[in-house]
Simulated scan of single mutants.
Amino acid sequence: MTQKVFTVDEIKKKLEYFCVYQDRCHQEVEKKLSEFRLIPEARELILLHLMQHDFLNEERYAKSFARGKFRIKKWGRKRIIQELKFRKITTYNINSALKEIEEKEYLTTLEKIAEIKLKSINEKNEYLKKQKLYQFLYRKGYESDLIQQVIKEII
């Protein structure tokens, strides 16, 4: 099976559309670039073009990722940090992204999801109920001390 051959300009356009559709990190763009089997010089040229024309911006990606995962999936800071590190985002950009989450909103969200989850836990034993709630919130990426504080308040 033969693969279609693209010029560097065609690949640039394809990757511009790829980046415009949704913010992307370098890792995602490089994975997409590997599909085209380019020589290293052409890869670097395309990546440089995307960065210079602001199609590829790691800080913007990290900020939108953190906002989205917190507001939509209700993830905690620890889970967001873990996922950004997995995508090879720098510590500076991770810290910048976490500033997008307001402390008051963070605590309010934690309390809301704890209350909702608590209602769905069918457990008579109070200790097991607390343990299940704690594990759920910990998997969501919330900090242990905040979880314990919220559990004390709502139970």
Rank of each mutant, 00 (worst) to 15 (best):
I113A: 08
V8C: 10
Q131S: 14
L107K: 12
Y127A: 12
H49E: 00
V20M: 14
I151W: 08
K13W: 03
T108N: 05
E44V: 06
E102D: 11
R60L: 13
I121S: 09
I121C: 08
H49V: 02
E35H: 08
G141P: 01
Y21K: 15
R37W: 04
K14T: 08
V150E: 01
K140I: 00
I155F: 09
Q149R: 13
L45N: 06
K104H: 14
I72C: 11
H53I: 05
S96N: 04
Y142F: 13
A97P: 03
I94S: 05
G68C: 00
E111M: 11
I11Q: 00
K32F: 10
K99L: 12
I101W: 01
K12T: 02
A114E: 02
K104T: 15
T90V: 05
Q148Y: 10
K119W: 05
S96V: 00
K13S: 11
R24E: 02
V29P: 00
R24T: 06
Q148W: 10
S144Q: 14
K117Y: 01
K99A: 10
R37M: 13
D9W: 14
E10V: 09
E10R: 02
T91R: 15
L133H: 02
E103L: 06
I116E: 14
T108W: 05
K63F: 09
E41V: 11
R37H: 13
T90K: 09
V150L: 02
Q82M: 12
F36Y: 15
Y92Q: 11
K99E: 12
F65Y: 06
R77K: 15
V150S: 00
V8F: 07
K31E: 15
